[in-house]
Structure formats: structure tokens, C-alpha cells
């Protein structure tokens, strides 16, 4: 897994709980540094999650998501060993990704 993402996908009964923690500054473009210069906007805009290659979630984000974004969502019908993959793209064109297999509790 890439260093810019921590993930967990746990099957609990019928629901798979997916937790994702991404490493990203999420700068709004309105903040100034100690010298009074504006810090350029840098934030994740698009997040996509796939289960065994099939897309299950898309998130569009603005600058209002906190630094090092955190996300939980729930899937039905996933099985232990299924592969969950998350990709993000930020406003500067940078990308990040993570992949994890579904585990049981």
C-alpha cells in the first residue's frame, strides 16, 4: 500500500466497513504562511473507490475537507478477500492510491 493512504475494510455481518485515511495538506488557498504569502491551494478533488474493479463510490471534495482526509463508508455483498482500491486526484493533478483486501472482524 502506498504511504499516502491507510485503509481498512472489515466485514461485519452483512456490511463491510471501509475506513480510509489519506495523507494530504488540503490547503484552501486562503491561508498565509509566516511571511504573509498565500499558500497555494492544494486539495483532493476526486476520490474513487472500487471493489474488485467495479466502482462503488465517488467523492467530490472542495477545500472544506479537513487536512489528512478521513472517510468511512459501508458496502454490501463484499466477501473476505475481495480487493478494495481507492484512488484520489488533487487540484494540482497529483494522485494517490491504496489497496486492501476485505478481512473479517
Amino acid at each position: 500500500m502506498a504511504e499516502n493512504m491507510r485503509m481498512r475494510a472489515q466485514l461485519k455481518g452483512e456490511v463491510t466497513e471501509v475506513k480510509v485515511l489519506m495523507t494530504h495538506p488540503m490547503e484552501t488557498g486562503r491561508r498565509k504562511n509566516d511571511f504573509g504569502d498565500l499558500i497555494p491551494a492544494s486539495f483532493i478533488q476526486l476520490v474513487s473507490a472500487t471493489l474488485n474493479g467495479k466502482q462503488v463510490l465517488e467523492a467530490q471534495w472542495g477545500t472544506g475537507i479537513s487536512k489528512n482526509p478521513y472517510l468511512t463508508f459501508h458496502l454490501r455483498g463484499a466477501k473476505v478477500g475481495d480487493v478494495l482500491r481507492v484512488n484520489w486526484t488533487d487540484n494540482q493533478g497529483k494522485t494517490g492510491q491504496g489497496e486492501i483486501a476485505v478481512t473479517s472482524v
Binding site: V56, L57, E58
Partner: peptide, 9 residues
């Protein structure tokens, strides 16, 4: 944010 759910989510 806007979260869009696919089948199974």
C-alpha cells in the same frame, strides 16, 4: 463534499 454511491454502497 458530494458522495455518489454505486451498487453495493
Amino acid at each position: 463534499a458530494n458522495f455518489l454511491f454505486g451498487e453495493g454502497a
